[in-house]
Amino acid sequence: MFECGDLDAVASAHLDGELDPARESELVFHLTGCAICRERLEVERAYDAALRLRLRRTEVAPASLHAAVRGAIVAARPPSVAWYARGLASSWAPRFAMAAVLAVLLIVPAVRLLQRIPDVAQAAGDRHGCHHLTAGGVVPPCCKELSVLAGMSLDDPSAGVVVPDLTSAGLRLVRATRCNFHQADANLLAYHDVAGNSFSLVLSPYEPASSRLIRWRREDGVPVARYVVPVDVPAHGVRERLDVTLWRSGKIACAWTGPEGNTAHPIAWRVLRQSLR
C-alpha cells in the first residue's frame, strides 16, 4: 500500500524510469487519488529536467590533451605475444630477418659515428655520479643527454627500449636524456607539439608498457614538476626511490633516495606525480 510519506523515497527512481514495476504501479494508483503528491511529483519532475539541462555543459578537451592521449597510445606497448613466441613459421619471418640484417648494417656504423662525437653533457653527467644521495640533499644535474633519433634503440642492454616515434601524434622528439644509477636507468624523452607545448616521456627500461607520457607544466618558478618513482632493485633486495624533477629550463634532475626497506615485490616501475607546492 502506497502512502504519501513514501513519495520522497521513490521519486528519484521514478523520475529516472528505474522504479520497480510493482512499486511503480502502486505509485501510479496512489497519484490518481492524491492531488498533493501529483503536484509534488510534477514540481520534482520540472526541477529535475531543469537541473539536467543546467548540468550538461559541454566541455571540450583541449587540443594538447588530444595530442597527449594520442602520443601516449602511440608510445604505449600493449601486452602482446613476443615475436619469438609466435613462431618462426610465420610468413613474415624471412622479411623480418632481412629487415633486421639491413637495420644492423645501417645502425651499427651510425652508432659508431655518434660515439665519436664528444658529448660534454654526457661527460659532465658521468663526473657527477649521483649515486645514493641522501634524502633532502642537494640534487645535482646528473643526467646525460643522448644523441638518439626516434626509432633507435637506447643503448642499454637491460632495456632494449626503442625511442618512440610520435610524429603521427604531432609530437617531435627534441631531447633524450638518461639518468644513470646503479641498477636502473630512467630514460626521459622530451617532445614538442606544433604549439610548442612540452611533453616528457618517462620510459621504464623494465616495463616499457608502464611508461607514461606526461605533460610538462608551464608555471612560474624554476622547478615545474617532480616525479617520485619507486623502483625495486632485486640485486639489492630493497625498494628505493627515484626523485625526478623537471626544471623550467628543460633540465632534468634526479636523486636516489632509498633504500627504504626490504621488499619481495617483482620489479615495478610506477610514476607518481606530486605537484610542487
Binding site: 559541454t58 566541455e59 578537451a61 588530444h66 597527449a68 592521449v69 601516449a72 597510445i73 606526461i214
Partner: peptide
C-alpha cells in the same frame, strides 16, 4: 574523449587533474 573530459572535470574539480586522469584512463583502456 570530450564526454569523458567533462566527467573527469566534474570529478576532479580542476582541469589539470582532469587531464592527468584522462591520460591515465586512456592508457589503461588501451
Amino acid at each position: 574523449l570530450n564526454a569523458l573530459f567533462g566527467t573527469a572535470l566534474r570529478l576532479t574539480r580542476n582541469r589539470s587533474d582532469a587531464e592527468d586522469l584522462l591520460q591515465e584512463t586512456y592508457l589503461r583502456a588501451f
